[in-house]
Simulated scan of single mutants.
Amino acid sequence: MEQGYARITVCFEAPFWIGVLEREWGGTLEVCKIVFGAEPRDYEVYAFLVSHWRELRFSPPVTGVRRAEAANPKRARRKAGQQLRGGVGTRAQQAIALQREQNKRKRREDRRRRDEAEEARRFQLRRQKKKEKHRGR
């Protein structure tokens, strides 16, 4: 049976509080960045996740090997403290950057299509006006 996990990290990046939701399944990691306004409480984060889970847009999956957890309790405690201070992991940052690039590429393509359609519409309008001017000749 294959197992997966989901983890959310909420941290402050001036001027907003953001949440980075990581989910791992089958050796791949997907990340979603959520922007909160004011500092969210635990129950607000939970309510947001419950009500908006299906609407979240995750990054494309990033493959990577997950390290085994350390058995030493002192090391585990130190690692937990580092995670509290450090915020988001590097794999998560890579996944967010990949998602940002794909969104940027999609916006460019959409804008290009819109501009071409607008230019074609203007050309047809100019052509139509030209024909109307020479109607009686």
Rank of each mutant, 00 (worst) to 15 (best):
R78S: 14
A95I: 01
R113A: 11
A38P: 04
A68F: 05
G86W: 01
P15Y: 07
G26C: 06
C32T: 03
R41Y: 01
V65D: 07
Q83P: 02
P60Y: 06
A6L: 03
V50D: 04
K133E: 12
R137S: 14
I8S: 03
G87P: 01
R67E: 13
E44V: 01
R122D: 10
K130T: 08
L98F: 08
R111I: 00
N72P: 00
Q83G: 15
R75M: 13
W25V: 07
S59G: 08
E13M: 11
L125I: 08
V20W: 03
Y46D: 05
G89E: 12
D115A: 10
L49C: 03
G27M: 05
R113Y: 04
G86V: 01
R91Q: 13
V10I: 14
K131W: 11
Y43P: 00
Q3V: 09
E101L: 15
E109V: 05
A76E: 08
R57T: 13
A71P: 00
F123T: 01
C32M: 02
E2R: 09
G4E: 02
R23Q: 14
G19I: 13
R66H: 10
E109S: 05
E44R: 02
N72A: 05
A120Q: 13
R41H: 05
G89N: 12
Q82R: 15
L84W: 07
G86K: 06
G81D: 15
E109H: 02
G86S: 07
E22D: 12
T90C: 04
E13I: 15
K133P: 00
K33P: 01
V45Y: 00
R100H: 04
A117Y: 04
P40V: 08
R75L: 15
R122G: 07
G64E: 06
G136C: 05
E69A: 11
R85W: 02
S59I: 06
E132P: 01
R114V: 05
C11N: 14
V20Q: 05
Q94R: 12
R135S: 12
R108K: 11
A92Y: 05
F16I: 10
E116L: 13
H52D: 06
L49Q: 00
I96F: 00
L56M: 07
R66C: 07
R108G: 02
A47V: 09
G64A: 06
A68P: 03
I8V: 12
P61G: 03
G27W: 03
V65A: 12
R66V: 14
R66M: 10
H134M: 15
L29V: 10
K33L: 09
W25M: 14
A120I: 03
E39C: 12
G27E: 03
M1L: 09
